[in-house]
Design a protein around this nucleic acid. Sequence first.
DNA 1: AATTTACTTTACGTTTACGTAAACTTTATC
DNA 2: GATAAAGTTTACGTAAACGTAAAGTAAATT
Lengths: 148, 148
Amino acid sequence: MAEKTTYSISELAKEFDVTTRSVRFYEDQGLLKPARRGQTRIFSSKDRVRLKLILRGKRMGFSLAETKELFDLWDETLTGNEKQLLKMLTILDNKRAQLEQQKNDIAQAEMEMDTAEARCREALADLQKRKRQQKGAEKEAPEPAEQK
Amino acid sequence: MAEKTTYSISELAKEFDVTTRSVRFYEDQGLLKPARRGQTRIFSSKDRVRLKLILRGKRMGFSLAETKELFDLWDETLTGNEKQLLKMLTILDNKRAQLEQQKNDIAQAEMEMDTAEARCREALADLQKRKRQQKGAEKEAPEPAEQK
DNA sequence: AATTTACTTTACGTTTACGTAAACTTTATC
DNA sequence: GATAAAGTTTACGTAAACGTAAAGTAAATT
């Protein structure tokens, strides 16, 4: 038994660096379904996984609604009628296309950042050069008399 | 002269499949700065590039404010004082880290989609199998008499 | 001249993803 | 048993990114 199986709301919040408010909100929107002991929420490791997926989804630009759709779909898929399964397969295909697009976007962004960085470094080198040149000039004519 | 140099709002909107409302909103937020002929906006190819960047940013989960920050910073950088240049370099570094995170996220997502797809296909194969078995059974005992 | 078409500003409405405060209960600690 | 700590619900507030009229202008077409 290496894995902890239940978590409090603040444990999860701390682990993933979100507020408890957010966690409750995700439950409200049907993305998490913690058990209860009285009023208190008790999160399972499944909930934990889902929270992780929610946050990754957000980083990838997915809305909560989109993520919920996927969760729901996957749950339905597990009940396993043929139509659901086929639907899931096509949706997986679509998501894959989305990921491809994102990979392209990232690659583009990286290239542009490369050229941006290069330009920055060039500009910096230029500045350094001018500084050195000025220092040389100062030796020829020291103290270039301030303008009053 | 291969490149068109000016665009109307609806040309851009159509090309990038956004509403004119969005384009005006981006201007409002300081992300685009089209020239004017009287009241009418005239977009340059620089504006076009920026719009492309805005939309890519959105796909990558950047807010308009974040994108604007980058635009502004880059503009300042072009004026080229040393502090700005160094700041830009560190920001580029941060963005690179963000992209790395996103690449990880995407890789994870792809793996999970692989296993998801596998499970789907397994489940489907299972269903097919049962269908065949049922057909076989029908031959042994045809018309399994409906329950009234 | 009248109409259509594209564009404009102004402004209120909407959805998403929480923040924040208030008032209350439950659980742990001294 | 008082008090602090963590949890709860309810509810109003907010920023972002537009949607959606409403009402007007300007240019091109019939």
